[in-house]
Design a protein around this nucleic acid. Structure first.
Lengths: 150, 150
DNA sequence: TATTGTTATACTCTATAACTATA
DNA sequence: TATAGTTATAGAGTATAACAATA
């Protein structure tokens, strides 16, 4: 089996990233969601009701941006704003029933999507792929850490 | 070696996609470029001087959007607009010397980045990774084609 | 009449800075 | 004085629709 040059491997990974991204963005759009708003919903589902300040830190985004994202999600019925019981400056953002439903559906579809991509892959190749991806992820994290510090 | 469940594989791929995307976006920003503008430069480098209409089709984006992208690239010195010799309605967008230099540098760095990620990977694992990625890309293309037609 | 690119308008994501209400 | 969130302002990417110049 010929060993492909690094550039070809990188190009494969990039193409995969582009296709997956397009596929997911399209699915979200059908439900009236965008990647940024979905990211916020995802955090909310993991953390439970949160202040906008906490969401801004979790998403690594400005407070102003969170105001806009919550505005959009509130208008489309995925979240509500409520008074914070202990701090009258703060707002608690909470998933609505619709928001909970969407998150559940998203989790289910995530699993289905993974099955569709990998279920017919032989066990040995699956393990080899995981090992290869792990290697690349390690290298990439190292590179990013080096860029950040010096 | 245990075979990982599909969801774990998908999550690995998604994390890789996110990290690579962040890395590339950061590199581009240091040169005053954005992903969308870079995409246009890339097409231009491959096709040679092109009308905005052709660029819009190549990028699968509205004509209005190309006007904006070319405005930005012109203002930052990467491209120029010139009269089309045979059609006075049309504009020919052309890479400047600076634009050509940037594209060359980008190609070089692309290769270097690939080397940094994959050079220390054993040949056998490299081949296995390419095979695994090929499998996923095939499945994904099939899924997308199915979504598009029915 | 059809096509090329622009102006007009609008929505989303993103940021910083100034400001209000509260701690 | 510091913090939570908003308004004000700005730039980038995206879209559709109307319009001018040209084919």
């Amino acid at each position: 089996m010929a060993s492909p040059p690094p550039v070809d491997l990188l190009d494969q990974v990039l193409e995969l990233a582009v296709l997956i991204n397009q596929d997911m963005t399209g699915s979200l759009a059908q439900r009236g969601l965008t990647p940024a708003r979905t990211h916020l919903l995802w955090e909310l589902a993991h953390r439970g009701p949160s202040t906008q300040r906490d969401l801004a830190e979790a998403l690594r985004v400005s407070a102003r941006n969170v105001t806009g994202l919550v505005d959009g999600l509130e208008a489309t019925g995925f979240v509500t704003r409520a008074a914070h019981p202990g701090d009258r400056r703060a707002t608690l953002v909470t998933l609505t029933a619709q928001g909970e439903r969407e998150m559940k559906r998203m989790r289910d579809e995530h699993v289905q999507f993974a099955d569709a991509l990998f279920k017919d892959m032989p066990q040995a190749r699956r393990a080899a792929l995981a090992a290869g991806l792990g290697h690349v992820l390690d290298r990439l994290r190292t590179l990013i850490a080096q860029q950040a510090s010096p």
